[in-house]
Amino acid sequence: MKAVRAAVALVALAIAPSLLAQGSTADEIAKYRAALQDGNPAELWEGRGEALWKQQRGPKNVSLERCDLGLGAGVVKGAYAQLPRYFADADRVMDLETRLVWCMVTLQGYTEADAKKNPFGNGNDRKSDLEALTAYVTSESRGVKMNVPMRHAKEAEAYRVGEKLFYFRGGTHDFACATCHSEEGKRIRLQDLPDLTTAQGAQKAYTTWPAYRVSQGELRTFEWRLYDCFRQQRFPELVFGSDAAIALTMFLARNANGAPFDAPAIKR
């Protein structure tokens, strides 16, 4: 029961002050996370997303079942493990979220503005279809090895731009992604930070998004992860489906190649 979950969390918090060794605190947090694995509410988003995928919707009243996520029209299984990638029909490198918007526009007849208008949900009154669809599609790559292609010149270009963005320092605080994510074993407060410059670090981080965030009661996608990192970097607002968002995703997803995808996950 949820009450049990809450109790586990309390135990973890209560133990923390008595243990000066930081390793033990991290262990307790790891136990808390393990206790959350069973019954991940992300499944609620996966279920809603699957229904949305199959439902006839939009001005053209068709489902997304003919949407080409890179492996052919309608192939969902394993598609996320090979994204972002170059799509000839759009002449652009796209991540999953951008591709979903593309399909909602070209297949279902939505305007781009309509398709993109609620990328990140907020509670019961503002549920995001894009988050639900992303949860469903990503769940169909669980266990599949990351295999992001870099055959097309634009894929290679997105990767290089993504790498540049990773090291781009700006804003009031001079922060870049690299400020927090280029050394092994670092933390902000008690939050462990993945080192995204190593294959192992990128794999561990990238393959566990989307995730249900217990602290928010929401499922969050990788685009959200980037959006909120930039907010904390004191940058202006990252535009959903923008070139910078896709390039950074390309850089990190490609660095995660070889690791089995393991999301939607659950995080603090």
């Binding site: 029961m1 949820k2 009450a3 979950r5 069973d38 019954g39």
Partner: peptide, 11 residues
């Protein structure tokens, strides 16, 4: 109200 958002029940 002590039960969390999106509750998980197992028995």
């Amino acid at each position: 109200t002590a039960v969390s958002k999106n509750p998980f029940l197992s028995f």
